[in-house]
Structure formats: C-alpha cells, structure tokens
Design a binder for these strands. Structure first.
Ligand SMILES: [Mn+2]
Ligand SMILES: [Mn+2]
Ligand SMILES: [Zn+2]
Ligand SMILES: [Zn+2]
Lengths: 130, 130
DNA sequence: TATCAAATGCAACATTGTTGCGTTTGATAT
DNA sequence: ATATCAAACGCAACAATGTTGCATTTGATA
C-alpha cells in the first residue's frame, strides 16, 4: 500500500478548507493558494483527499463541482448522506449537515455514494430579496 | 414571449428519449441522431426541453451529466424530487421515480431544484457480480 | 546522509459547454 | 400557394474543466 506524505501543498489546501465556511471549487482553491503549486497538483490533492474521506465532493445541477471538509467524528470510510445547498444568487455552496434525506431504495441496489444537492436561495439572499 | 417550433432535430431528440429506458448524455444523444444536426443544436434543444420541463437534468458525482424525460401527469412546472441511480459498473443512469427523499430543511431556504443521485451497483451488475 | 517511492511541474491533450453571427426553416397570415 | 419573420440552426472560435505521461523534486524512513 501507498504511504501518504504531508507536502506543503496538501497542508495549504487543508488549511484553506479549515478556514472556509463554504464549499470550494478547484479554481477557488487554486487561487487561494496563490500559485503555491500547479493546478494539476490541486486536482491530485483533491483526488487523494476525497479518496481518504477527508473531504467530500459536491456536484450541483449547474455543473459546478465543489469540495468541503468532512465533519465526521472519525476519519473512516462513510457515506455523505447530508444535503448541500447551492444558492443561485450568491453561488455559495454550503453543507447542511443536519439535513439528512431519508429514502427507501429496493434492496437489489447497492449504494456506495450519495449526491444530494438542493438549489435555490440561501437565507442571506432570500432576506435581501424582500 | 417566444413561440416554440417543432423542428426535425427536436422531434428526433424527443423520439430518442421516448425509446430510451435510461437517462442519456449529450454525446449519446448526438450519436443516436447520426449527425442529423450539429452538436451545438443538441445542446440548445436540451436547454429548451429542460426549461420547458419536458426533460430533467441529472448530475452524477463522477461529473457525468444526463437527461431523462419527465414522467409527470402534466407538462407544468415541477420539482424533480425523485432519486436517480448511477451504476459504477455499467455506467447507466436511471430514474427511480418511486424513490422520493424526505427531508426537513429550515424555512429560511427557498428550494427551486433538487439533484438527488445515488451511485453504486445496479441490480443487473450486482447480480452478475456474485 | 543515503534511499526510494510519493508527489510535483510541465506540456500536451480530451471533453464539455458557450457565444456570436450569418443562414435556414417552421408556423402563421395573406 | 406565397410572403413574412422570428425561432432555430450551422459553423467557427473560444473558455473552462479535467486527464495523462514523464522527467524531476521532495518527504519520510532507515
Ligand atoms: Mn457536505
Ligand atoms: Mn428522473
Ligand atoms: Zn445566496
Ligand atoms: Zn449497472
């Protein structure tokens, strides 16, 4: 098996996730690192973090892909069965850790991953819309 | 307001949707039309069909985007609050019209659209895996 | 400090989706 | 049947996003 290493780029990306209250896109992360590394490296770091269940991927109907830190008690493998909200106005994507969808799926399906994203207006933008 | 027209390309795309049991990607649809029209036209037709709530868009965690016909009683505006299943092996995406997630979201969010996609192994692939 | 694979940089490429603009075409009225 | 006119189209050009191969660098360990 592979032995992971703590590189400066990976550490920087993790710090960025730690500080951010919203989910981040590849481009946003790359910009926030201020050219610390190549954009390909960011892709590869994100791949590894998703594989290690340190961050999770969020895909929205508009095609945007974002990433957010996993706020689970353990670093073990798990399914991210919580909702995400994508605001059509401010374009921010946030984890709604407490909104967990319940559903009944036939037993002959094996579910490995979930993408549950709601889009519309977030509380901020809904408020300023009045 | 715009007055829609029934072009040969749009008719062909609708027939393709009618015949297909699974959701289709832009590339798949374009191939099935056998170069009846430009690929940009397919994009524009899909945009219109989604806008008119004739088909709905499905986005998977692996980044693939697919479209499927809406099987609702009416052609009016509605939210597609049913699950979709994306098989990691055969790569087929199907609508699970009967699997509707229930969830409780704070009242200060306004939800306009939903993307609920489960990925894993479909019944066929799960079966042939034994 | 030597070792060695993990991780990176760079270039090149593929895929997907968008935009502008001149041309074609489908529906409607004449 | 024909004229009309905007909806829809074709084409080219572009942008964004993500992937791959390979030589080089770097982090952890001995
Ligand atoms: Mn989340
Ligand atoms: Mn569906
Ligand atoms: Zn907002
Ligand atoms: Zn399958």
């Amino acid at each position: 098996m592979k032995i992971a290493r703590n590189t400066t780029a990976k550490t920087a990306v993790l710090e960025i996730f730690e500080k951010s209250k919203t989910a981040l896109s590849h481009a946003e992360i790359h910009k926030l690192t201020e050219d610390l590394c190549d954009r390909v490296t960011i892709y590869r770091i994100l791949d590894r973090l998703v594989n290690d269940d340190v961050v999770h991927k969020i895909v929205n109907l508009d095609g945007t892909v974002k990433y957010a830190k996993c706020h689970h008690n353990a670093q073990r493998v798990h399914i991210h069965n919580h909702a995400h909200f994508s605001c059509e106005k401010c374009l921010e994507v946030t984890c709604l850790e407490n909104v967990k969808p319940s559903y009944i799926i036939p037993h002959n399906y094996k579910v490995n991953d979930i993408n549950f994203t709601l889009s519309g207006l977030c509380p901020n933008c809904l408020n300023s819309n009045i």
